[in-house]
Structure formats: structure tokens, C-alpha cells
Design a protein around this nucleic acid. Sequence first.
DNA 1: CTAACCTTTCCAGTAACTGGAAGGTCAAGA
DNA 2: TCTTGACCTTCCAGTTACTGGAAAGGTTAG
Lengths: 128, 128
Amino acid sequence: MMNISAAAKASGLPTKTVRYYADVDLVPAPARTEAGYRAYDEASVRKLIFVKRARDFGFSIEECRSLLGLYQDDHRTSAEVKSLAQKRLEEIEQKQRELQSLKDELTRLVTACNGDHRPDCPIIDYLS
Amino acid sequence: MMNISAAAKASGLPTKTVRYYADVDLVPAPARTEAGYRAYDEASVRKLIFVKRARDFGFSIEECRSLLGLYQDDHRTSAEVKSLAQKRLEEIEQKQRELQSLKDELTRLVTACNGDHRPDCPIIDYLS
DNA sequence: CTAACCTTTCCAGTAACTGGAAGGTCAAGA
DNA sequence: TCTTGACCTTCCAGTTACTGGAAAGGTTAG
């Protein structure tokens, strides 16, 4: 059993975040010491690491909750997991398309702008 | 002079958002009626439209505040505006790189996953 | 024993709204 | 004139996923 900062270090998360995950019941501490300190075991640390990876992939806390449920469920099917990952992939692709058209438009404006000391600016003109 | 819902319609923003922009002093209502209703003129509506465009471009409220300052300043230089736009462009490019590597990794996992009724799942394995 | 460092809970703040409640205003129709 | 419905106002709370800080208590090394 380790205390919260050891669990945080082992999972690569800030202590505050580990406490937060316990608060929202995503990865609760499996036990408390006499003094009320959270005590984490190996299994919980693995869950913290799992959640950190999933968060880095952009899964929301609620999606992490689902994934964690599947992670702990020996009877899960890979189809269930794949479906969540595919949903996330589509979100990423949608975001990419949005960013690209944004970038194209902004690039055109930046290119058209002299960027000198004069007040004439196609960017401002476009926004107006 | 028009009331808030007319200004909202003219700018394409929700009424709540127009009120919010007034609250945070981004685009204040230029006047009030006797009854306390916000009264918007043409100039303010133009500012609302300007802010909406800039927000659609992903500029933050604080960046909009700067842009609006430049928009209203006849002595601005196009260099000032261009610099803000370029900063935003770099942020977009950074986000694009992050999304791409995320997508690559997630795509590999999704491809490797059978997505069938069996519990074996490379996605879960990877996250663990 | 004390200093340093750990832990706890709770409260507030972040960005940019959004929803809702309670209550005042206004224009049109019976 | 009264009422109905669509406006408007302010204020409070909630959203996401933490993060910072305060106050108070626990633990450990010297």
C-alpha cells in the first residue's frame, strides 16, 4: 500500500488529480489509513495509469469510466472497446477538418496582410 | 436603436451571449431604455459581428478584446493585427500536429482490434 | 522536540457560456 | 381596461477537468 503521492508518481499524474479522480469516483482509493490517508494498492495504480493513457488520447472522464468498466470486465467484447475508440477517432477527424479550413482561411489573410506600420489591414477588413 | 434580441439576430449570436459580452465589458450596450432594456446601435452590432467572426476563428475573448481595440483604433498598424493572427495560426498548427499523432496511434490500435465478440482487445492491452 | 514535509477537507477560480428562476415591461386583442 | 404572451431584467448554478490555496492535522528524520 502506498500513499497518494507515491501513487501519483507511479502513475505520472499530479497528486491533485489523483485526489480528484477519487472524488468523482473514477478511481477511488481502495482503503484509508488510521489517520485517514488514502492508501493505494497495485491494482488501483494500474487503473490510474490506464486512465492517464486514455486521457492523453483525449477520452473524456465519462469515456474513461466506460473504458475502465470494460478494462475490468473479463466478459467484454473487443467490439465494445473498438466502438468507443472509433467514435473518438471520428471526433478527431472532424476536429482536423475544422482546423484545416480555419488554417486555410487564416493563412490567406495573414499572407494578404502587409504587416507594416500602415493601418490598412485585410484581416481587420475581413473580420468587419 | 434595437433591443437585445434584435441585436442578437443581426449578429448571429444567442441573446445570452450578447448579454454575456456586455457583462464582461467586451461589447457593452451603448444605452439603456427607461425600463432598463439594453439598446444597441449599428456600431455595437458591427462590433458583435466582428467578435462573432473572430470567435469562429478560435480567438479567445481576451484576443477578441485586443482585436476589437485595434479594430476601433485608426492609428493601428497592420503589423499589430498580423502578429495576433500569426500567433493564432501557430496555435492551430501545434494543435494539428498533436491531433495527427493522436490519430495515427489510435488508428493503428483500431486497425489491430478484431472488434468481435471475444474479449481479446489490443486497445485495452495498449492502455494497460 | 522541532522542522520539514506529508496528508486531509473545503472553497474558489479557470473559459465561455448556458439554463433557469423570479419578476418587471410592452403591445395587441377582447 | 384587462389579460395574455412575448419580451426584458438580474442573479444563481452548472458545465469540464482540473488547479491553487488555506487551515488544520499526521509523520518522520535529526
